[in-house]
Computed example of a mutant assay.
Amino acid sequence: MTISKNNIAGSFVINPDIYEDERGTFFESFNQKEFEKILGNPIQFVQDNHSISNKGVLRGLHFQKGKHAQSKLVRVVRGEVIDVIVDIRKDSPSFGEQFKLRLSEKNKKTLFIPKGVAHGFLALEEETVFVYKCDEYYNKEAESGIIYNDPQWNIDWEFPADQIILSKKDSLLPPFNELEL
């Protein structure tokens, strides 16, 4: 596997070694020992989540606050997404920066998102299956988010704005400058 750091402190992309022959394809999508070697410290994932989204569905930008903050390991097993993370950790050297990439069943990339970083994705294909591991359990009281089109971040979702589909909850998320972190 190949590891690529990005501009968000503590975040990285994993490109697995892919083996293909006449039978099909094989790759290792997760290995705890190798992952902890990359991370430089132990981590225990406690929850796996699956999301199935239609084309144009945007989920995010989400995060959990305080002691319930979650690190996430995300990938796509069917379809393709535009995946965006925004560093909202005020003490981070990359505070205010964003990172965007395409995750797909074809490229098989995995993105690690550290605690305190907001995350969202937009499905580019029907029935896109997005899976992720979390190192903390979901806690409703700790959930938070930022509106996807916050002018402070000016994220290019590479998709027609009038075709984006949001949940009611996501459509009511505040801009970053109204959040109490």
Score class of each variant (00 low, 15 high):
residue 52 I to F: 13
residue 161 A to H: 10
residue 157 W to N: 12
residue 23 R to S: 12
residue 46 V to I: 09
residue 165 I to D: 13
residue 64 Q to N: 06
residue 72 K to I: 14
residue 101 L to E: 05
residue 48 D to I: 11
residue 118 A to L: 02
residue 13 V to K: 03
residue 110 T to D: 01
residue 87 D to W: 04
residue 15 N to G: 08
residue 101 L to N: 00
residue 44 Q to A: 10
residue 101 L to T: 11
residue 154 N to T: 02
residue 175 P to I: 11
residue 157 W to Q: 07
residue 180 E to I: 08
residue 20 E to Q: 15
residue 36 E to D: 12
residue 30 F to I: 10
residue 158 E to M: 00
residue 113 I to H: 01
residue 124 L to S: 06
residue 113 I to A: 01
residue 149 N to C: 09
residue 64 Q to T: 07
residue 75 R to G: 05
residue 28 E to L: 10
residue 69 A to L: 05
residue 143 E to T: 07
residue 134 C to N: 04
residue 137 Y to E: 13
residue 167 S to W: 10
residue 81 V to M: 05
residue 154 N to Q: 09
residue 112 F to I: 12
residue 56 G to M: 09
residue 152 Q to G: 14
residue 66 G to P: 08
residue 181 L to R: 02
residue 18 I to V: 15
residue 113 I to K: 03
residue 172 L to H: 12
residue 161 A to G: 09
residue 2 T to D: 11
residue 3 I to W: 00
residue 16 P to L: 07
residue 152 Q to M: 13
residue 177 N to S: 15
residue 89 R to W: 07
residue 136 E to W: 00
residue 103 L to Y: 09
residue 19 Y to V: 15
residue 132 Y to A: 07
residue 65 K to F: 08
residue 147 I to N: 10
residue 121 F to R: 00
residue 42 P to D: 13
residue 116 G to V: 04
residue 97 E to C: 06
residue 129 V to E: 14
residue 148 Y to L: 04
residue 7 N to W: 00
residue 149 N to V: 02
residue 78 R to T: 06
residue 103 L to H: 02
residue 143 E to K: 02
residue 24 G to R: 12
residue 89 R to A: 11
residue 75 R to V: 10
residue 72 K to M: 03
residue 97 E to A: 01
residue 174 P to W: 01
residue 68 H to N: 15
residue 168 K to H: 09
residue 162 D to R: 02
residue 46 V to P: 02
residue 141 E to N: 13
residue 158 E to D: 11
residue 127 E to R: 15
residue 88 I to E: 07
residue 51 S to T: 15
residue 176 F to E: 13
residue 11 S to E: 06
residue 103 L to V: 10
residue 179 L to V: 06
residue 119 H to Q: 11
residue 103 L to D: 01
residue 54 N to S: 13
residue 178 E to T: 07
residue 163 Q to V: 01
residue 77 V to Q: 07
residue 125 E to H: 15
residue 110 T to F: 08
residue 86 V to G: 00
residue 5 K to M: 10
residue 170 D to S: 08
residue 141 E to A: 08
residue 102 R to F: 10
residue 174 P to K: 14
residue 33 K to S: 14
residue 86 V to I: 14
residue 112 F to P: 00
residue 29 S to E: 06
residue 168 K to L: 07
residue 97 E to W: 00
residue 135 D to C: 00
residue 119 H to S: 03
residue 39 L to W: 07
